[in-house]
Computed example of a mutant assay.
Amino acid sequence: MNLLISNDDGIFALGVRTLANTLAAAGHHVTVVCPDRERSATGHGLTLHDPIRAKLVESGFHPTIQAWACSGTPSDCVKLALGALLDAPPDMVLSGINHGSNLGTDVLYSGTVSAAMEGVIEGIPSIAFSLTSFTHQDFQPAADFARSLLAQLETRSLPHLALLNVNIPAVAADEIAGVVMTRQGVRRYFDTFEKRVDPRGKIYYWLAGEVLEEVSQEELEQAGMSGLKASGGDIEWFRNTPTDVEMIRKNYITITPLQYNLTCALGLESLQKWQQGYKKWAE
């Protein structure tokens, strides 16, 4: 397969090198376009008011890989690759392997997920890979799973306009409990800003906080079933599908399909009831 790989940890991150080199060694044609520095938590930001530069990187990757360091965001990297650096669209866009999890509502901030989503926006099947630890350094089990998943996808197709958000537990390969399809959970943070003073006596703030993963089942259902109810989906099936947050705790690899259409169908259904009132107001 022809693969485009990006990330948000930067071109020198161990995760992207392990992923790219593993897939190149498996016979895939790999092109890497990554930020030239750390770009975590940039979401789907784009560079509009500055030039974007790209430079070839000549070391650290498998000899068959062409790798570029890009001055832009993760989404910029994929846009630039598809619009200027590649001669033809890839078969798939991959992002990662991220150093840290992208579970639940993390995906709204994630540069890793946004890079993959940029591929989906362009109509290309895409997958985001994350290792659920900021300190663990062994990315090989995650890369090996990516290789296995791609082998399966060579004979199967992804859902239209959906990306797969894959999180791999940070444990040894023989400790991984299995692979499970999940729905997106809720991961809320208690965010606080630490007030500090720099050496010149000026005040600045540093974002800090702790993650809160224990949320009620009712809240999970409210967060996840807004579209399901309005579309006539199987609510019981949805309730019985575990969340990514839950299954990572049990050392499962989680695969969650995501989409860029954020329309709240249940909210739209409710708002349409207001429409008659607005018509009367307009008259």
Results as ranks from 00 to 15, higher is better:
residue 2 N to E: 13
residue 3 L to D: 05
residue 4 L to C: 09
residue 6 S to T: 11
residue 14 L to W: 08
residue 15 G to K: 01
residue 18 T to C: 15
residue 18 T to H: 14
residue 25 A to V: 10
residue 26 A to P: 06
residue 29 H to W: 07
residue 29 H to L: 10
residue 34 C to R: 10
residue 38 E to T: 10
residue 38 E to M: 14
residue 38 E to K: 09
residue 42 T to E: 09
residue 48 L to R: 15
residue 61 F to R: 11
residue 64 T to C: 03
residue 66 Q to M: 13
residue 70 C to Q: 04
residue 80 L to A: 03
residue 82 L to S: 02
residue 86 L to W: 04
residue 88 A to R: 14
residue 90 P to H: 07
residue 93 V to Q: 01
residue 103 L to S: 03
residue 105 T to W: 14
residue 109 Y to D: 11
residue 110 S to T: 02
residue 115 A to W: 02
residue 121 I to C: 04
residue 123 G to I: 04
residue 127 I to K: 00
residue 127 I to Y: 01
residue 129 F to I: 11
residue 129 F to L: 12
residue 138 D to A: 07
residue 138 D to Q: 08
residue 141 P to Y: 12
residue 142 A to R: 10
residue 142 A to E: 01
residue 146 A to M: 12
residue 146 A to D: 10
residue 147 R to W: 09
residue 151 A to G: 05
residue 153 L to F: 07
residue 154 E to R: 15
residue 162 A to E: 06
residue 166 V to H: 00
residue 166 V to C: 05
residue 167 N to W: 06
residue 168 I to T: 14
residue 171 V to P: 07
residue 172 A to R: 15
residue 178 G to N: 05
residue 180 V to Q: 10
residue 183 R to V: 06
residue 183 R to S: 03
residue 188 R to I: 11
residue 194 E to G: 00
residue 198 D to G: 00
residue 200 R to I: 00
residue 203 I to L: 01
residue 206 W to K: 08
residue 208 A to C: 11
residue 215 V to G: 11
residue 218 E to S: 04
residue 225 M to S: 15
residue 227 G to Q: 07
residue 228 L to W: 10
residue 228 L to G: 03
residue 229 K to D: 05
residue 230 A to V: 10
residue 232 G to W: 14
residue 233 G to L: 03
residue 234 D to H: 05
residue 245 V to S: 00
residue 248 I to T: 08
residue 250 K to T: 00
residue 257 P to C: 06
residue 261 N to T: 03
residue 267 G to Q: 14
residue 273 K to M: 04
residue 274 W to V: 11
residue 279 K to Q: 12
